[in-house]
Amino acid sequence: MNFERLNAHFPWITLVVLFLLVGLANPAFFNPVGLLALAGDVVPLFIMALGMTFAIYIGGIDLSVQQVANLVTVVATVFLVKLGIGVALVCILAGALVGALSGLVTTKFYVPSFVSTLAMGFVVLSGAKWLSNQRALHMNAEAREASFGWMFDTTLGLPNELIIAVLLLALCWFLQTRTTFGRALKAVGAGELAAVASGINVDRIKIMAFALCGALAAISGLMFSVKLSGGDANLANGFLLLAIVAVLVGGTPLTGGVGGVLNTAVGTLIVMVIRAAMVFLEVDATHQQMIFGIVLIVAIALTIDRSKLKIVK
């Protein structure tokens, strides 16, 4: 068994080992009720990471997702009463639009995606601040219950938000593995120049990937907003780092082309277990980001395909 073949199995082995370690240290961790609650908490993050997977899979990155989610919390809170559940559509379209714009800037003006999305994030942040008047807003409780109350019900004993997460995962997995779009994504991630020479419209594929990423970030923000019953231009801060960590520890390297959305599901669960462990070990909240920063660096160092990336600057 050589190291490279082991590499593909590394994420889920990590997950199982961490899961058992935390559980052995604190048997209460294995309580199914508690686990379901933990999983429910991580759903908005997971959906954002799901979107991020597409950006990273093609060898790019989307640093605007956190700001898109921020904007969406404000939009959802402000327009909920007027639009009812229709506000979800507005939010998702807005997210997709922001993503598509980032993709357009990246492909047409040759601005690397980490810069174009970073810049787009600030544009979006301004929008969120302007719309919220820089205040924390509260959702109308009745309208929230009427439009999104179902999110917190259960079906067959499972929380509906978890079911949404699983359905989105299934959809994304289908897109990635069974559609021409997914195949083209893989080709762009693994060998962009060959994809161009094969007549694939690479620009369009990239724009679509970023749009999908933006749309999922919007869904993530919407769920978070409904969960916390409010909106704020800083509400989703802290999501970006964790979303990137989830994708990378899942085994989709920054160089793209391998991994995918199932990996991100595993990666998100790893993030969840680490978070639970830190709570159990009483790690100070202010130190948690530091831990995840270190995890991120380790994850990149372990997963990156050095044969593809000859130079790092």
């Binding site: 080709a187 693994a190 060998g191 120049l193 060959a194 994809a195 020479a197 082309g257």
Partner: peptide
């Protein structure tokens, strides 16, 4: 190897 085939994708892909 750069413009002809995509390494990392299967023969049928």
């Amino acid at each position: 190897k750069i413009e002809g085939i995509v390494g990392g994708m299967t023969v049928f892909e």
